[in-house]
Design a protein around this nucleic acid. Structure first.
Length: 296
DNA sequence: GCCGGTCAAGGTCTT
DNA sequence: AAGACCTTGACCGGC
């Protein structure tokens, strides 16, 4: 079991999500920013290595405007040295890597334009992971998408559009159960149709489910991951007290996470902590994981 | 320096 | 009708 956190390390000055406004885009600004972000990513990965945080979600701001028509820089070619170095480092440390494109990526969209934009966005995420030379256990996760008031129609749209995706996207794309529209059961339906793996999000499941107990739900999700996909990825969060239902906690609830680890102790999977404070909670989670599960 | 309006893209739910 | 929220807060102009 690997423990990780998404995108940002608050304790380090290094960062990998610097961006800028579209109107201030110039090729030079783009190159400068990408350079900062790639070096920042190396620093963050070094921190992770020294703290046994072996799962990391790379920010979609790593390459700002990568899927926007304004960006004509061949960044994979220009930054080949940096990308190779980072990829080698990731493989050397056996890190698990994920990415999570934004809410604007909608495979279920009725507008072809939105689908095209979505595919372009997925394309660069997957090409980045390819440029790192990572195996197919490095994943790009999205929500199923918009329903437009007709879930079953949206699911069929997802299946239809999925079949049209290029293979370098299909082999990295995974879906996550969400807290409002498409629950685990819907994701399992898609998996049955197209074989796509499912990331299990416990907080979303708590918000929207069909009465499946946690262990049953997470086991079902884990079975959607083939050997080449690697073991299940799970997004973990707990509810922020006294806030809107579904809002992620500011810091980890250690008792709740311990209970989660105990309930799932017979299953091997990697945990992404979607907790607002980032690495402090991930470090606590790692300590709890060792306590509950031992070194494995 | 710091504050606040705004930021590529869409949809959904709340107020 | 407008704002909040979601992957992930952060940029940037004005003071």
């Amino acid at each position: 079991m690997k423990i990780g956190y998404p995108c940002i390390n608050w304790g380090l000055t290094s960062r990998s999500n610097a961006t800028f406004r579209l109107k201030s885009y110039t090729p030079e600004k783009f190159r400068d920013t990408v350079k900062i972000n790639l070096h920042g990513l190396q620093d963050i990965l070094a921190f992770n290595a020294s703290h046994d945080l072996n799962f990391f979600r790379i920010s979609s701001d790593l390459i700002p405007f990568a899927s926007h028509p304004i960006c004509e820089v061949d960044w994979i070619k220009e930054f080949k040295t940096e990308l190779t170095t980072i990829g080698d480092y990731i493989r050397k440390h056996d890190f698990r890597i994920s990415m999570h494109p934004s809410q604007f990526v909608l495979i279920t969209a009725q507008s072809e334009k939105i689908v095209e934009n979505s595919v372009r966005d997925l394309d660069w995420h997957c090409r980045l992971l390819d440029a790192f030379n990572l195996d197919l256990s490095a994943k790009v996760q999205i929500h199923v998408g918009a329903a437009y008031g007709d879930k079953s129609r949206a699911l069929e749209k997802f299946i239809h559009n999925y079949h049209s995706l290029p293979s370098h996207i299909k082999q990295r794309l995974v879906i996550e159960n969400d807290d409002r529209i498409f629950d685990l059961k819907d994701c399992l339906y898609l998996h049955a149709k197209i074989g796509i793996p499912i990331i299990f999000d416990n907080l979303h499941h708590a918000c929207l489910h069909n009465d499946e107990p946690l262990i049953e739900a997470i086991t079902a999700a884990s079975k959607t991951w083939s050997t080449q996909d690697g073991i299940l990825m799970a997004d973990y969060s707990s509810q922020e007290p006294n806030a809107r239902v579904g809002k992620h906690a500011q810091s980890i609830d250690e008792q709740a996470f311990t209970e989660y680890l105990q309930a799932t102790r017979n299953l091997n999977f990697d945990v992404m902590l979607e907790i607002k404070d980032k690495e402090p909670s991930a470090l606590k989670a790692y300590a709890l994981m060792q306590k509950v599960r031992g070194k494995a």
